[in-house]
Design a protein around this nucleic acid. Structure first.
Length: 291
DNA sequence: GGGCAGGTCTAAG
DNA sequence: CTTAGACCTGCC
């Protein structure tokens, strides 16, 4: 399917369509990928460091192996899915057709359930720079040290077991504010198996969602993010301020309630709602719609 | 320096 | 079941 070549610790892939690291990492689904001076992105996934760069028709995966590419990164970057088909379907809508042109290289990552849950609890009611800072601090304090790359030290996202040892005060040291209590409560629920995060993928979206809503600090928006970004529930449609504004601006033509936007979007985009959300989010931010 | 920022929780109608 | 306020705090 893809042509893979290897040199040193670099894996070079030719033939990946519909993938641009910038679009994928800047569309709001992840917080631990950071831009390097050369325009590449470095991140940590499942205890492994990776650097990704697009160079024309090549994607260069640095600091990894062919085995990891096939067993880990193919799945993480959703490279088995035909995004062209999804775009074709969504492009029947003229607004989405426009939005897709801006974020044509978006792929929805298959992230870890636990990391996604805690990350999006932290994300509520704040801007992206502070969210990233918060999560990095948490990783550095409580995550396992993995190694260095380009002179920076990298840490894994702390496991539920690692976080379970922390007090609310300790969590607060990572700039989490009042969300520290949510993190402590949710960690406790996970450790006591009151919700089995790694079992929810099997359930229908609605059932998985109601399980997630039991967690402290997880409301409708955060639950939808967890479903979409870590459980392959592509009918989920997370509505944050940006998506709400873009939906009202282009489709509904008036300010309305979250509930109405939710119903409207699910009905309109159905099983592709999550993909539509990503294109619209990127589009809204690029254009600064509704600011 | 005061207001804002990828929502959730809680209490009340 | 829908709506209004409070909420940590770093950053612009």
């Amino acid at each position: 399917m893809y042509k893979i070549t290897q040199s040193d610790e670099k894996i070079i892939i030719k033939g990946i369509k519909d993938f641009d690291p910038i679009h994928t990492f800047e569309c709001g689904q992840c917080f631990r990928w950071n831009k390097e001076e050369d325009g590449s992105y470095t991140g940590v996934v499942k205890g492994k460091i990776l650097n990704v760069k697009k160079d024309g028709e090549y994607i260069i995966f640095d600091k990894t192996t062919k085995d990891d590419f096939i067993n880990l990164w193919m799945d993480y970057f959703d490279l088995k899915r035909d995004y062209n088909l999804i775009k074709e379907k969504l492009s029947k809508d003229s607004i989405l057709k426009e939005a897709i042109q801006y974020g044509e290289g978006i792929r929805i990552l298959n992230q870890d359930e636990w990391e996604t849950t805690i990350s999006f609890i932290i994300s509520s009611n704040r801007g992206i720079p502070i969210i990233k800072k918060s999560i990095e601090a948490l990783c550095k304090k409580y995550g396992t040290y993995i190694g260095a790359y380009k002179g920076k030290r990298y840490y894994d996202f702390p496991s539920s077991k690692q976080l379970f040892k922390c007090s609310e005060e300790e969590i607060k040291e990572s700039y989490t504010g009042y969300r520290a209590k949510y993190i402590v409560n949710t960690t406790c629920m996970i450790e006591k198996n009151q919700v089995d995060l790694y079992d929810l993928k099997k359930l229908f979206t609605y059932d998985a969602r109601s399980e997630l809503l039991k967690l402290s600090g997880v409301g409708p928006k955060v639950a939808d993010c967890i479903l979409l970004f870590s459980m392959e529930k592509y009918d989920a449609f997370p509505i944050d301020v940006w998506v709400k504004r873009v939906m009202e601006y282009f489709y509904i033509h008036e300010e309305t309630s979250l509930k109405k936007v939710q119903l409207f979007s699910q009905e309109k985009f159905k099983d592709l709602a999550g993909f539509a959300q990503q294109y619209l989010f990127y589009y809204a931010r690029e254009l600064g719609i509704g600011k």
